[in-house]
Each structure stands twice: as structure tokens, then as C-alpha cells.
Design a protein around this nucleic acid. Structure first.
Length: 474
DNA sequence: ATGTCC
């Protein structure tokens, strides 16, 4: 297909429907943010997604869009469940329920400074990270795992890992509905037993940050944030369990495609009707893995609280926890008619507008928090859902890669990067030099530009900018 | 993203 984008407005580009595309493509970006490298396949993936059975409105891409497995990362696609719409594991990603949790401390960066070294030492010693290596909580076996897979962060809190108030500030109150552990295979369960409360690797991290700037005082106050305040941002997912769930169900769907008569431009878009045996099985397993990811972030919160209490006598509260790799059943108006949709958000954050019934009561008038992690040398953003978002209430989830991991390794040395960050006053506790180099700030788009485009496109509004003080790197 | 190949 010949991919041509037409600029519709300053932050919105349109890809006309052609060939097997059932809907157009829509990319929210500035010219500078569009994938431009020769051979970049992200926009081709936006077009491929537009061919999926049952897709409605458009195949959307957020400002941080980049190439991924089947779907682009930063892609949003909704299918009509009652009109043969499909669910695709590639539209969620291998790291099911990968997401971000933001915590706010009752201390500002100035007073914390003398305690920062000790705080980072404790976090560095107590936050499990890297490949394998275990987690904070070892589950006893499948029976206990199934409770966690159904109740997510709620099960962790019930078992003493956190306080009930935490759940008030979790998307879906900490548990995605519809989890069916019977569709989570034994290998997935075994991989997950010893990884609850672990960061993993790749782009996952735990950062101590400070609120650098507030754009909306009222919303920031509703979120419990003010300028100068110390925060902690946790970015991680469902580890080996989520990966195994994706692998297992992609295989099943790949084999069932012919039976459903589904023709795809890319085998990585393997999918099945939501209303089908493999479709329901995947969604049940996906929700279970999503809940594992949420419990994972709940356990890591406990390590943060311990470190802040010990190093600084400070109290840490949950601002919000969002997943940015999910497929959720939601009702949206399509052409003026309410439809039950399967909304895939792969590297995209739920961004409900003020007044939406699914918001926590104390944020009902504010809107859904949108957490946009940047890079360890730049900044991260807190945004809030806005009215008029036609991408099914979705927004960006991060900066978005521009260099492949291979390119980053070729151009950056981990030891040198750490020295540069330390000289900027950013404390770094890596798990490997290679992993650090792959995540160099230069490997990413400009997160300030991504946040500006996200607001300009009407997807979400700016609330606060956070800057890193210390990085515990997965 | 991932016991970076069962």
C-alpha cells in the first residue's frame, strides 16, 4: 500500500481508506513526531490495523507511535463486538497491562536532598529488577495465583500489601473485570509465581521525580500534586506471565484464522471474533494477566513506602495507576449509536473526560489521570482526559522510540551515560550497562513535544511536568 | 516486552 498522510489540522493527519482498509487511519502528531526514518513500518501498521474485521471509526495512532508487533505501539483500534468485531493479542502487546503508577510523597525536593543518597541506596537494594531474579512476593501455587489473577491489586491489598485507599486510585479499582484464570496456562502461572513485585527490564523503571512545573493548579491539587513535590513513578508490566499468555493465545488464533475466514495483511495481526471460543479465551486470560500487572505495581509500591519511611520518614500516597496495554469492553457512540466495542490500546492510556461515570468519585469532575513517562534524562508528564477525544478516550503513553535498541547500543555506552546523568544530578542504579544504553534519552522522541501534541490534538490536557532525581532501572 | 530459542 502507498501510505500518504494528509494534514487535517495542526496535530492531526489522515490516511485515506484504500485497498483492504475498512476505515481510514488517523495519526495525532506534529510533522517532527511522525515516523520518518527510511523503512519505518509504523504507519504501514496503522493501515494494516484498519483492515481488521469489525473495526470502527478509524485506526488511530498517538503522538508517540512507533513500530511494534503487528499493531504499532501507540495504536488504538476499536471493533464492534456485536458485528463480528475481532480481538487481537497483537493489539494489546506481549506485555499485557504494562502501565504506570505515580506515587506522591509528603516531602519536597529541597528537604529530601540530604536523604536522597540513602533513599536511592535502599531502593537500589530492595527493588527487584532485570531478567529473572524473582520478586517481592512468592506465591504458594496455582490456587493462590488464581485469586490474584481475579482480584489484581485488590488481592495484594487484601493480603496486607497496601491500604484500601490505594484501590480508589487504580484504573478499574485495581482489577479488570472478566478475568478467567482457566485460560491462563500452567507454564504462564509457573513463570509468574515468583515475579510479583519486580520491575523486569527493557524500558521499565522506578524513578524518584520532582514536580517541575504545574500547568493546571486545580487538577494538580485534585491529584494531590504541587510544585517542588517529590514523586515516584513506576513503569512495569506482567513479566513472564503476561508474555506467556500472549504467546499461547497468538498460537491458537493463528491456527483458527482460516476457520473464521479472516484474511490479514500481516500474520502478526492474528485475531478472532470477540464472540468466539478463542476470542473469549484470550480476553479472559488477558484480563487475568492485566490483573497480575496491577498486583505487580501494588507490591512495588510497598518497597517504595518502606524506603521513604526508612530514609526520610516520609509518607507516600497513590496518585493513580494506569495500564497502557489492554483490550477493554467499552460502550461508545459510533455514528450517533451506542455500540459495545472491544477497544485495543497498545501503548495508549485511557483518558476519560470529566463527568464520565467510570471515574473515581473524587475525580468525577476532574477527568482521568494520564501518565506519560518520558526518559531518564528528560521529563515525564501528568495529563488529564479531555472532552471531545474521538480516539475512544485514549492518549499517549510515553515518549516513543526513534532509535532501535540495536542502534542505541551502537551509539551509546552505558557507563558514559550514567556518568552524564550523575553529573546532571540524576542518581542512576542500573541493572545492566547494556539495558541502560538501550534506554538512552537520545533513543526517544522529545517527550515535551509528545505532550504538547497530545494536548494540541485534544486527547488530554497538561497538568504537571516531572523531572527525574533518581532512576532505578530495570 | 520476554527464563532475548523448547
Amino acid at each position: 500500500m502507498d501510505i500518504t498522510l494528509v494534514q487535517e489540522s495542526p496535530f492531526r493527519f489522515r490516511m485515506e481508506r484504500q485497498g483492504p482498509m475498512r476505515v481510514p487511519g488517523v495519526v495525532f502528531a506534529t510533522q517532527d513526531l511522525l515516523p520518518q526514518a527510511a523503512g519505518d513500518k509504523a504507519l504501514e501498521q496503522v493501515a494494516n490495523v484498519a483492515t481488521l474485521p469489525g473495526i470502527v471509526r478509524a485506526s488511530f495512532a498517538m503522538p508517540d507511535v512507533h513500530w511494534g508487533y503487528g499493531f504499532p505501539i501507540g495504536g488504538v483500534a476499536a471493533t464492534d463486538i456485536d458485528a463480528g468485531g475481532v480481538v487481537s493479542p497483537g493489539g494489546v502487546g506481549f506485555d499485557i497491562s504494562c502501565g504506570v503508577r505515580l506515587l506522591a510523597a509528603d516531602v519536597d525536593r529541597g528537604p529530601l536532598a540530604p536523604r536522597m543518597r540513602r533513599l536511592m541506596d535502599i531502593l537500589g537494594d530492595t527493588v527487584p529488577r532485570g531478567m529473572g531474579r524473582g520478586g517481592l512476593w512468592k506465591l504458594s501455587g496455582r490456587a493462590q495465583m488464581e485469586k490474584l489473577l481475579v482480584a489484581g491489586a485488590g488481592y495484594a491489598v487484601e493480603q496486607g500489601h497496601g491500604v484500601p485507599r490505594d484501590l480508589e486510585r487504580c484504573e478499574d479499582r485495581g482489577a479488570l473485570a472478566g478475568a478467567d484464570p482457566s485460560h491462563v496456562g500452567q507454564r504462564a502461572v509457573e513463570r509468574g509465581l515468583n515475579q510479583v513485585g519486580s520491575l523486569g527490564s527493557g524500558n521499565h523503571f522506578l524513578e524518584v521525580q520532582a514536580v517541575d512545573r504545574v500547568y493546571d493548579d486545580a487538577v494538580a491539587a485534585a491529584f494531590g500534586l504541587h510544585a517542588g513535590q517529590v514523586c515516584v513513578m513506576i513503569h512495569c508490566g506482567s513479566r513472564g506471565l503476561g508474555h506467556q499468555v500472549c504467546t499461547d493465545h497468538v498460537r491458537v488464533m493463528d491456527q483458527s484464522l482460516r476457520g473464521f475466514g479472516i484474511d490479514l495483511p500481516d500474520r502478526q495481526l492474528a485475531c478472532a471474533p470477540v464472540v468466539s471460543t478463542p476470542g473469549r479465551a484470550y480476553l479472559g486470560a488477558m484480563a487475568a494477566a492485566a490483573n497480575y500487572g496491577r498486583a505487580n505495581r501494588q507490591l512495588l509500591t510497598e518497597a517504595v513506602r518502606h524506603a521513604f519511611t526508612t530514609a526520610a520518614g516520609a509518607v507516600v500516597e497513590l496518585v493513580y495507576d494506569v495500564s497502557h496495554n489492554t483490550a477493554k469492553t467499552e460502550t461508545h457512540d459510533v455514528d450517533g449509536v451506542p455500540r459495545r466495542l472491544c477497544v485495543h490500546r497498545k501503548g495508549a492510556t485511557l483518558a476519560l473526560p470529566p463527568g464520565h461515570p467510570d471515574l473515581p468519585a473524587d475525580l468525577a469532575g476532574t477527568g482521568h489521570p494520564v501518565l506519560v513517562p518520558g526518559t531518564m534524562g528528560t521529563a515525564s508528564y501528568v495529563m488529564v482526559g479531555a472532552a471531545g477525544n474521538d480516539a475512544f478516550a485514549s492518549a499517549a503513553h510515553g515518549a516513543g522510540r526513534v532509535w532501535s535498541r540495536h542502534q542505541a547500543l551502537h551509539r551509546v555506552r552505558g557507563e558514559q551515560l550514567r556518568a552524564e546523568l550523575e553529573s546532571q544530578g540524576i542518581s542512576v542504579r542500573p541493572s545492566s550497562w547494556r539495558g541502560l544504553a538501550e534506554e538512552a534519552p537520545a533513543a526517544y522522541k522529545d517527550v515535551d513535544e509528545v505532550a504538547r501534541a497530545t494536548e494540541g490534538a485534544g486527547l488530554a490536557r497538561l497538568v504537571a511536568r516531572l523531572v527525574p532525581l533518581g532512576v532505578v532501572k530495570g
